[in-house]
Design a protein around this nucleic acid. Structure first.
Lengths: 189, 189
DNA sequence: GTCTATAAGGGGATAGAC
DNA sequence: GTCTATCCCCTTATAGAC
């Protein structure tokens, strides 16, 4: 981002953007080079194994970045926590959502090592969610399942409403969705 | 599938499989031709606009097929309905799940007409879900929101556990997940 | 209707200059 | 470290034979 960033970092950053926007296969190394302001030969100086190598680095970089920015809201009750969580998620930049989507959809074609990185990230998010939720509910098992339910619910919302652009046709904001989830969790119907 | 199927239908079917497995961009028309037992020239006889044209037809075909096979379980209570729904979804062939994922990946790059087909499908599923749910709960608004919550929850589960293969690491079957969702919806925590 | 043959272009990758 | 120049292969697509 800064002009002083090394070309290597710049390549990873620009490649990440292109992968996110177009997918891995649809992105050419010529596009990546152009976006990074260099030639394809320069790519091979930093990434000997070519395009696949850049992909791996993008995944690693994404994981590192996500690790850093993960913070769950504070709240006095489970209901409030879920409402806040929904509100937080709704405020995330589209970039983050797109990146998650891209990796998810790329997943099947990733090498094993990178698959594990992605899975570990998902699981560590669920763990964080579970620990927080366990402050509000009785029973480890209950907290664990609820954490998955909450996590999956929001992921699903995002896929449907953001990725599939259903939000343009149906009127249900993520805030409302989170609020409804909180209500259901609290008292059922 | 039958040997008597026209080559045109066979191409759409085989292309659909390849797109699911590899993605659209990664699939070549040569692969499609080979899978369908013909040459690339034959493809252009049926699909003048080439690969894009085949993509469109696959989407249309997928929508038609989904329309046909969509049945929701019968149940005496909301809780039972949700449990059954989870069990049904768990039994779906991976093929169906993969297709949904693939279309999601492709969505951003689809022409408007095909985008609408996909959205309409999603919305019509939610409508079916909503109508069924409204048998059990009071209030149109409530049924609508709950239908989205249920739909998104299952989509999210599928993404995480099936697509990201978290099911191999974490022990939470879709049956259990559906059961837990039913329990939460019924009485809260 | 389906094939053979091939054109035209773009893709990933590399050798060697600077 | 980065570029110029280029290679080879594979891709999409088409013309014309059968």
């Amino acid at each position: 981002m800064a002009d002083s960033a090394s070309l290597q970092e710049l390549i990873i950053e620009k490649a990440g953007e292109l992968f996110r926007e177009q997918g891995y296969t649809a992105t050419t190394i010529k596009q990546i080079a152009k976006a990074a302001g260099c030639t394809t030969a320069a790519l091979y100086y930093y990434f000997e194994d070519g395009k696949q190598h850049i992909l791996r680095e993008v995944i690693h970089d994404t994981a590192r970045e996500a690790e850093f920015s993960r913070t769950l809201p504070q709240a006095d009750s489970l209901e409030e926590f879920l409402v806040e969580l929904g509100a937080n998620l709704a405020r995330r930049p589209p970039k983050v959502v797109d990146r998650f989507n891209w990796i998810m959809l790329q997943f099947a074609t990733l090498p094993d090592e990178e698959k594990q990185i992605v899975q570990n990230q998902v699981i560590s998010i669920q763990h964080a969610l579970r620990e927080r939720i366990s402050q509000y509910v009785a029973g480890k098992e209950m907290a664990d399942r609820l954490a998955w339910l909450v996590y999956c619910s929001f992921v699903g919302y995002q896929q449907m409403f953001t990725k599939l652009e259903v939000a343009g046709v149906v009127d249900l904001s993520m805030d409302e969705y989170g609020g409804f989830l909180a209500q259901v969790v609290r008292q059922g119907l």
